[in-house]
Simulated assay, not measured.
Amino acid sequence: MKKTSLKSALASGKFVAAPGLHDMIAAVVANTFDLPFAYASGYWTTASAHGLPDAGIATYSEMLDRVTTLCRVSNAAIIADADTGYGGLLNVHHTVRGYEQAGVVAIQIEDQEFPKKCGHTPYRRVVPAIDMVEKIKVACEARSSDETLIIARTDARQSEGFEGAVKRGLAYAEAGADVVFLESLESTEEMREACRRITAPMMANMADGGRTPILSARELEEIGYAMAIYPSMTGLAAAQAVQTAMAAFVEHGTSQTPAQPLFDFSEFNQLIGFPEVWEFERRWARDRSAG
């Protein structure tokens, strides 16, 4: 199916809100809501696929495999976290080509040193701004279609302060980034000022439990953002549901308790595609019996 164009959505001035999809169960459930965009988070992809922290441990190949699967399963157009581009300039070129072929509509690259760390955890270090500028230029040149957008993220707020982060954002926009992303801003005042000073489309990260205030899409649009990601939502919701279910199971010794509603099994069979399997089996069972 044809996915929604992020480039066209931003050009139209329509605010883009993309919830994170941490695994394929979240993706098939989200398909029932006809979302135009969704986000593939490095943190939650690594956690759900490998049970590991977002600390540069997962490889490019592992992440590409997960992103490719998500693009196939989800009806939404996928905005994908590509960490640092998984290395130097040649790696960035290879990453952009691979993610674009996977089917994403935007590729997010950050200016952290390798191995990177989650943007809302400590001990992040950034590369020199000129190194990231070169990565952005390589990323823009590597893409086959200008429908594939490059999102440039800076993690400099922690080490270089707000002014340092804004300075990098301006440089990244000048280098050709389609969208600029200042990670871990710490107040609505900083968010508003960043949007005032950087004229490129700005993306906000609404990471539940992180350092940035969580605002609604309407509030973010009013501040001046063009788009926002909500990367933690389905992952944290799923973790809470599992914790609640396990607590009820330990207490009652059964999965069937009023304390934990379960998704309807028959409905999930429909979402995951079993009707097509059953129809295939009915067809071929008839053909075999006729022969």
Rank of each mutant, 00 (worst) to 15 (best):
M1Y: 13
K7V: 05
S8W: 06
S8F: 11
A9C: 10
L10Q: 07
A11M: 08
K14N: 15
K14E: 15
V16S: 05
A26Y: 05
V28E: 00
V28M: 04
A30D: 08
F33Y: 13
D34P: 07
D34Q: 12
Y39N: 02
S41H: 08
W44E: 09
A47G: 08
A49H: 07
H50K: 05
H50W: 10
L52C: 10
L52N: 07
G56N: 00
G56R: 01
A58W: 00
Y60T: 03
S61T: 08
S61C: 10
M63C: 01
D65Y: 13
D65T: 11
D65P: 00
L70N: 03
R72P: 11
V73K: 01
S74D: 09
A76H: 04
A80W: 03
A80D: 00
D81W: 05
T84K: 12
G85V: 05
Y86G: 01
Y86C: 04
Y86H: 03
N91C: 06
N91T: 01
N91L: 04
V92D: 05
H93A: 14
T95S: 02
G98F: 11
Y99V: 04
Q101E: 15
V104F: 07
V105L: 06
V105M: 12
A106M: 11
I109G: 06
I109M: 04
F114P: 06
R125H: 12
V126W: 02
V127G: 07
P128H: 03
A129D: 14
V133N: 02
K135V: 00
I136A: 10
K137W: 10
A139K: 08
S144W: 09
L149M: 12
E160S: 14
R168S: 04
G169S: 11
A171T: 07
E174K: 09
G176V: 04
D178E: 13
D178L: 10
V179C: 01
V179Q: 00
F181D: 00
L182Y: 08
E186Y: 08
E186Q: 15
M191L: 10
M191K: 02
E193N: 08
E193P: 02
A194D: 02
C195F: 11
R197F: 09
T199V: 12
P201V: 03
A204F: 02
N205E: 06
A207F: 15
A207K: 11
A207Q: 12
D208M: 13
P213H: 05
A228N: 00
I229F: 11
I229H: 09
Y230S: 12
P231K: 04
S232E: 12
M233R: 12
A237T: 12
V242K: 03
V242R: 04
T257R: 00
P258V: 14
Q260P: 08
F265C: 06
E267W: 06
F268L: 09
F268N: 03
N269A: 13
Q270V: 07
I272P: 01
I272N: 03
I272L: 02
G273E: 02
F274N: 10
E276Q: 14
W278D: 14
W278N: 13
E281Q: 07
R286T: 13
R286H: 11
R286Q: 15
R288C: 13
S289V: 13
